[in-house]
Simulated scan of single mutants.
Amino acid sequence: MFLVYVIAPIFQSIWISFYDWDGIGAKTWIGIGNYVELFDDDAFYTSLQNNILWLVLYMLAVPAGLFIAIFLNQTVTGIRIYKSLFFFPFVISQVVVGLIFSWFYAPGFGLFYLFLEEVIGTPIAILADERFVTYGIIAAGLWPQIAYCMILYLTGLNNVSPDQIEAGRLDGAKGWRMLWHVILPQLKPATFIAVVVTVIGALRSFDLVSIMTDGGPYGSSRVLSFYMYEQALSEYGFRMGYGAAIAVVLFAIMMVFISGFIWRMVRDERSGG
């Protein structure tokens, strides 16, 4: 199943990227022509820049999820209500998240729009401003992503050894020292999964961009996955080869980040760090 539905499509996409093809007619071999055009395409660089911004800011979901998980792991009054509230973003569709934040930013009646009008006197239409639109979409994406990381860490905290915690307390560890030297080393598997899914989520950020801005204004909020869709499957193109070339670049970026993190984890495990 993995070979048929994952490995084979990867190599098929790489193969298609060397053709000029509309998805229906005959393919025309053009070698690296799609890649040459790609690296001279301003829209590609805008999409790549936005994806890097997504990657950097999306990683905030990992520490945020960790600290929320630590809070929810406590025994306090009403903790089940808190868990339900923090868990809620994870179970709703990305489409719903996009619509909620579109209303949140909406000029005239959006809560954030009215808040800015009250605080700074000059309201900003976030999704219509090229300077802020990508940040607004990333904020929308962080809401459910933090919830996902929180769930991973809650599961990991259930497997933390009480004996090591007690030993740390006897050695005088508490607060940040306890977290850094005793708890976090035992949460490495959860951290690995959280980082991987966050990197993947940042790079395949198609749905929120499509729902909230459709790549606008003026293409300023495009990301690579959305630009790939525009070129390969929308009314703008049906250029399957060019879209496949974008997909290959996106896959390469994803593999660099994930492979680097795997290498670091393996190195730490072998060195006992």
Score class of each variant (00 low, 15 high):
266 V>H: 07
127 L>Q: 08
146 I>P: 07
93 S>A: 13
33 G>L: 04
102 S>G: 12
245 A>Q: 03
212 M>T: 09
213 T>Q: 10
123 P>R: 01
169 R>C: 03
125 A>W: 09
157 L>V: 05
235 E>A: 13
115 F>G: 07
235 E>M: 12
34 N>Q: 10
246 I>M: 01
35 Y>K: 06
139 A>H: 07
30 I>N: 10
58 Y>S: 08
149 C>L: 04
134 T>K: 14
244 A>I: 00
83 K>T: 15
9 P>N: 03
250 L>G: 11
11 F>L: 02
157 L>C: 08
156 G>D: 05
177 R>L: 06
257 F>Y: 02
157 L>G: 09
159 N>T: 13
108 G>V: 10
187 L>D: 01
143 W>D: 06
67 F>L: 12
73 N>T: 02
28 T>A: 08
192 F>E: 04
108 G>N: 06
88 F>L: 15
161 S>P: 01
55 L>P: 14
185 P>Q: 00
61 A>R: 10
241 G>T: 00
21 W>V: 02
88 F>M: 15
51 N>W: 02
192 F>N: 11
242 Y>D: 03
69 A>S: 03
268 D>F: 09
138 I>V: 10
198 T>M: 05
177 R>F: 04
33 G>K: 02
177 R>G: 05
21 W>P: 08
112 F>E: 00
248 V>F: 00
257 F>V: 00
15 W>E: 00
136 G>P: 05
110 G>R: 02
126 I>N: 09
65 G>D: 01
100 I>S: 06
83 K>W: 01
160 V>A: 04
2 F>C: 06
82 Y>R: 08
93 S>M: 05
230 E>P: 06
168 G>R: 01
212 M>K: 04
108 G>C: 09
262 I>Y: 14
75 T>G: 07
23 G>K: 03
117 E>V: 05
58 Y>M: 15
197 V>G: 12
168 G>L: 02
212 M>E: 12
60 L>V: 13
190 A>Q: 05
164 Q>L: 15
1 M>G: 15
97 V>F: 00
233 L>V: 05
201 G>C: 08
208 L>F: 09
171 D>T: 03
120 I>F: 14
193 I>T: 14
248 V>N: 00
208 L>N: 08
39 F>E: 08
268 D>W: 11
174 K>T: 10
130 E>K: 13
151 I>T: 10
268 D>H: 14
195 V>I: 14
225 S>P: 08
88 F>V: 14
238 F>Q: 10
182 V>F: 07
197 V>R: 11
264 R>Y: 12
261 F>S: 09
37 E>H: 00
86 F>I: 05
265 M>T: 14
83 K>P: 07
125 A>Y: 07
107 P>V: 06
43 A>I: 09
106 A>P: 02
122 T>P: 06
192 F>M: 13
54 W>A: 09
240 M>D: 01
116 L>E: 09
19 Y>Q: 14
153 Y>D: 04
251 F>V: 08
156 G>A: 11
151 I>P: 02
211 I>V: 15
170 L>D: 14
103 W>S: 15
225 S>W: 00
257 F>Q: 03
53 L>K: 11
194 A>F: 04
5 Y>L: 14
77 T>L: 13
251 F>L: 11
1 M>Y: 15
27 K>Q: 10
157 L>Q: 06
219 G>P: 05
191 T>P: 03
45 Y>N: 10
138 I>R: 07
144 P>W: 02
22 D>I: 07
16 I>M: 00
57 L>C: 03
128 A>I: 11
34 N>L: 01
167 A>G: 08
28 T>S: 12
63 P>L: 12
